[in-house]
Simulated assay, not measured.
Amino acid sequence: MIVIAVTGHMDLADDTLPLVRTALREAIAPHAGSGLVGISCIARGADSLFADVVLELGGKLVVVVPSRDYRQAKVKPGHAADFDRLSAAAGEILVMPYDSAGRDAYVAANAVLLERADRLIAVWDGAPPTGKGGTADVVEQAREAGLTVEVIWPGGARRAG
């Protein structure tokens, strides 16, 4: 069995989504026959793309929800159907012991991802950390913990905005 966690940007540009999906499939496919488990917070963008690819490849999905109010407070209407679909497909859902979503809840959720993972895939443009709980911060923590980190940022990829 191999457990792969994900961290990544939520604000991927629309034309970047297929590039990232293809790169994720290439990174994850070699592990598909070895009891693949993917662990994700299934946020919009990289997290959900990763979860979809894990399920497409026959893996088990573990979802980490940062807080009890996360679905209602943080999941935007445009992502709600995907969030609900991925939650329903998960083999396990862990809800962090926080009433409200916020920096502490995200940091705790990321800690669970890293504790349970054998390796981390980061859909990351390489920008430095902007605070605790973001993609760059998770990459730093994973590297400090000795986890293998695979950075995915395909040519032509960009963030929206």
Score class of each variant (00 low, 15 high):
63 V>L: 08
121 I>W: 02
147 L>S: 08
74 K>Y: 14
3 V>P: 01
146 G>V: 09
70 Y>F: 15
35 G>W: 07
118 D>P: 12
133 G>N: 09
114 L>I: 05
41 C>R: 10
74 K>A: 15
41 C>T: 15
82 D>S: 15
86 L>K: 10
24 L>Q: 02
108 A>M: 12
134 G>Y: 02
142 A>Q: 04
84 D>M: 07
11 D>P: 10
117 A>E: 07
68 R>S: 13
141 Q>A: 13
147 L>P: 06
10 M>G: 12
35 G>E: 10
92 E>C: 13
96 M>G: 02
15 D>G: 06
23 A>M: 01
52 D>N: 13
80 A>Q: 15
148 T>S: 15
111 A>M: 07
121 I>E: 06
17 L>K: 11
44 R>N: 11
97 P>V: 05
139 V>L: 03
147 L>A: 11
102 G>L: 10
91 G>W: 02
87 S>Y: 13
71 R>N: 11
157 A>L: 01
64 V>N: 05
83 F>N: 09
120 L>P: 01
126 G>A: 10
121 I>G: 04
105 A>H: 02
67 S>Y: 07
127 A>V: 10
115 E>L: 05
101 A>R: 04
129 P>Q: 02
154 P>E: 05
75 V>Q: 10
53 V>A: 05
129 P>K: 02
47 D>H: 00
48 S>Y: 06
22 T>G: 12
153 W>C: 00
19 L>V: 11
69 D>K: 09
151 V>Y: 03
47 D>A: 03
55 L>C: 10
97 P>K: 10
60 K>I: 15
124 W>A: 00
131 G>F: 05
70 Y>L: 08
16 T>L: 02
133 G>Y: 01
1 M>T: 12
22 T>P: 02
54 V>Y: 00
33 G>Y: 02
110 N>Y: 11
65 V>P: 01
38 G>I: 03
15 D>P: 03
157 A>N: 00
60 K>G: 14
86 L>R: 06
97 P>E: 08
126 G>L: 05
50 F>T: 01
144 E>W: 07
32 A>G: 09
121 I>L: 09
103 R>I: 12
44 R>D: 12
132 K>Y: 13
153 W>E: 00
147 L>R: 11
34 S>P: 12
124 W>D: 04
41 C>N: 15
